[in-house]
Simulated assay, not measured.
Amino acid sequence: MTKQSTTRIAGPSRISSVVNFLGSMRLAVSLLVLLAIASVIGTILNQQQPYEDYALKFGPFWFDVFRDLGLYNVYRTNWYLAIVGFLVLSTSTCLIRNTPRMIREMREPDTAMASAYDPQGMANKTEIVSSLPMDSATQMVVAVLRGRGYRPKLHDRGDGGMVILGRKGRYSRIGYILTHAAIIVFCAAALYNADIPVKLAMLTGSTQPENNFHIPLSK
């Protein structure tokens, strides 16, 4: 008898799939679009006005429709807070996942990157064969890199080869970090101003909302 062994290739776990989904750019852009649409509605339509004014302006049918959608108080509706909450979660996930790597890359010295240089393991690489001497070819590459805004540095590999390392925009990642942090702060402020404690009290039943009655339109 022969024994057969099977190997199972484990796919991404559910936790990693959720993290990748929350930190995806597609989700963040979709949430920002929804948030922009809701903000436009809240800007065009006067908020927190007496119900009688809305009833006189839109009529009985559209008054009820807009009231059920929460358009008279957009910034405190559950669906608006859900969008803001998911945007905070998505932005925080992206920031927590990428910030350590970005800080590590900004602080990493050029010599460490040069020592870890492996042309075979690079996804994007270009091989150029030149008949020029090493010094002439090196000067040519350095001149091209400087012309494109890089600051090239030379590192001897020790095997007769030369590594020319050119980095540009090392600290540009700070803008990425600050932008995402600002989005989190703005969204957190929106959640704070949305009377969330009052909503929680309403869910638990300790607080009852006051019924708003609108005056019927006169014929």
Rank of each mutant, 00 (worst) to 15 (best):
L89R: 14
Q48M: 11
E108V: 10
I164A: 08
T6F: 12
S206F: 06
I83F: 01
S218L: 13
S17H: 00
K57D: 03
R104E: 02
A114F: 02
A182R: 11
L34P: 03
P209W: 05
C187Y: 09
S92C: 08
R170N: 04
G70R: 15
Q208P: 02
L27P: 12
C94V: 00
M162I: 13
M113A: 03
C94L: 09
T179Q: 10
M113K: 14
I9V: 14
R107V: 07
T138K: 15
T7R: 15
G23P: 05
E52I: 13
K168E: 04
R167G: 01
G158N: 08
L203T: 06
I164T: 09
N211H: 09
D110G: 11
G11N: 06
I41Q: 10
R97T: 14
L32D: 00
R26W: 05
V141H: 08
S17V: 09
P109V: 03
L132E: 12
E52T: 15
A28S: 10
L35C: 11
I128K: 15
W79I: 03
M25Y: 02
R170C: 02
L217I: 13
T111M: 09
V29L: 15
G169I: 02
V40Q: 00
I215N: 12
N98F: 08
V29P: 06
P152I: 02
M113Q: 14
L191A: 06
K57L: 12
S90D: 07
E105C: 07
K125H: 15
G85T: 13
T6C: 08
I37K: 08
S172N: 13
G166F: 08
A194C: 05
D195H: 07
H180K: 01
A10M: 03
G205D: 03
Q4D: 05
T126R: 08
D53N: 14
A38S: 15
R146T: 05
L34V: 01
C94K: 03
P216D: 07
G11L: 01
L34M: 11
G161T: 15
P197R: 03
R104Y: 04
L35T: 08
M113N: 08
Y171K: 07
V142H: 10
L217H: 11
T179F: 14
A143P: 07
Q208N: 09
I9W: 00
A201Y: 07
P12Q: 15
Y75M: 02
N124A: 11
M134H: 14
D195S: 06
E52R: 15
E108I: 11
L191V: 04
T2S: 09
T7D: 03
Y75K: 09
A181Q: 04
S5D: 05
Y51V: 15
I196M: 13
N212Y: 10
Q4S: 12
H180P: 12
T93Y: 03
L34G: 14
A10K: 00
E105V: 11
V40N: 01
S206H: 13
K199W: 02
V19S: 10
A82R: 06
V142N: 12
S131Y: 05
P209S: 04
A201N: 09
S13F: 00
Q139P: 05
N211A: 12
G175T: 10
S218V: 10
A82E: 02
Q139K: 14
N212I: 12
Y72R: 15
R26Q: 04
V129D: 11
T93G: 07
G205V: 08
F86K: 04
G166D: 05
V18W: 09
S24K: 01
P152Y: 07
